[in-house]
Simulated scan of single mutants.
Amino acid sequence: MNKVLSFGELLLRICPDSAGSWLKENSFPVYVGGAEANVAAALALWKIPSAYMSAIPDNFIARQLLGYLDELNVDTSAMQYSGERIGLYFLDKGKDLKNAGVIYDRKYSSFSELETGTIDWDKVFYGVTWFHFSAICPAINQSVADVCEEALKAASEKGITISIDLNYRAKLWKYGKEPVEVLPALVQYCDLVMGNVWAAEKMLGIPVSETLVEEHDKSAYLQQSQISSKAIMEAFPKCKNVANTFRFDHGSGIQYYTTLYTQEELYISKEYMADQIAGKVGSGDCFMAGLIYGFYKEHSPQEIVDFATSAAFAKLFTESDFNTTKLEDIKKVVQEYEN
C-alpha cells in the first residue's frame, strides 16, 4: 500500500483576537492542527496514500475530528484510544507558533500520556513505507520521547524511510532536559532531516556562526546551510538528505527560500517575497509534506526543493492549520511573488 504515516499530537488551535473582541462576540475561530496532522492532510490532498496516528479519548469531539480526517482521505486506522482529553493551544490570529504569546494546554492530554509497550507497531506499520514525526513529540515529556524511540526502532527494523522536522518549541521543553540531550538519539534513525540551521544548533549541537544573524546575508545563510547539512550527515550516517528553510519577517510581509542538501550537492529553491500573508501556522509542515511528496514521487532534487518551497509559500495565504491548496493551484498562487 506504500502509505506515509505521520505520528504526533492532534491539536485544536483556538484563536482569540488580541483586541479581545471575542469576549463580546462570544466566538473565536477554532482550527484542527498539530504539526504531523498538517503533513498528513497535505499529502492526502495531493493524492499520496496518507495515514495519521495520534492518541485521542473516546468521546464525541474526538469522533468528530476523526470523521473530519476521514473526509480528507487521511487513514486513521492506527489511531490510539486512551486518556480523557485532546491537547489545545491558543494563538492570536496571524501569529507564528514561535511567538512568545502562544499558550499551550497539553498537559494530561491523551497523547502526552502515551507509554512504551502499549502500541502494536507491527500492526501500525502494516503497509507503511514512510514514517514521519517531529521534534515536538519528544518535547512533551520523557514518556513520549521514549515512545518515539520505540517507534523509530520498529520502523528502522522494517526498512521504512524515516523523516523528522526539527521544529523547536521552547515552551514545551519543561521536563528537565534540553533538546540536545534527547534529539540525537532519535535523529540517528532518520533518512531525511528538515528544519533550519538554528534548530540544528539547538537540538543537535551543530554550531552556527555567531555573526550569521547580524550579517543577514543570503550567501552566508546558504553557506551555513551546506556546512550544517554536511555536519548532520557526518554525525548521523543514516541521514542522506537535509533540508533547511529560511523565512524572514519584514513588517507584515515575508521573505522565503529553502535548500536541500543531498548527494553531496546543495540545491537552492526560488525565493519568494510578499507584503501581506494570511497566517504562518503550518507553512513549515507544508514544506515537509512537499519534500515527502517529491521523494515519494522520485523527483529530482531540484524539483523536490522547488515544489516543497512553492507549496510552503502558498500555505502562507490560508488561515487554517491544514493546507487547502491543491497541486494544480500552487504555481498560480506563488508565481507573482517570485523574487
Rank of each mutant, 00 (worst) to 15 (best):
A199W: 04
E71I: 13
A44D: 02
R169N: 05
D92Y: 13
E157K: 14
T309K: 02
I164M: 13
I136H: 13
T262H: 10
F7S: 02
P49F: 02
Q226W: 02
N167Y: 08
G279K: 00
P29T: 04
G117T: 14
V242F: 09
Y89A: 09
G8V: 03
N167I: 14
G127Y: 11
L291W: 10
L183V: 15
I56R: 10
A235K: 15
M273L: 05
R106C: 13
A289E: 05
F313E: 01
H132L: 05
V187N: 13
S320T: 12
T129Q: 11
T258H: 05
A155L: 05
I48Q: 04
H216V: 09
D146M: 14
W130F: 10
T318E: 01
G279V: 00
I103K: 08
L114T: 09
M288S: 14
L5N: 04
E149Q: 15
E9Q: 08
L43E: 04
D321N: 03
E319P: 00
E25I: 10
L266P: 06
S219Q: 12
P49R: 10
M288P: 00
I119M: 06
S109K: 13
T129K: 12
N26L: 07
I162G: 03
A311M: 04
K315Y: 09
F7R: 00
L316V: 00
L114G: 07
A278W: 00
S163T: 13
E150L: 09
P301C: 10
P16D: 10
Y256L: 05
Q224S: 05
T262F: 07
F125I: 07
I227S: 10
L172Y: 12
K3W: 09
M194E: 13
Q224I: 00
S219L: 03
D249W: 03
Y168G: 04
L260M: 12
S82N: 14
C190L: 06
Y168P: 09
K240E: 13
A220V: 03
Q223S: 10
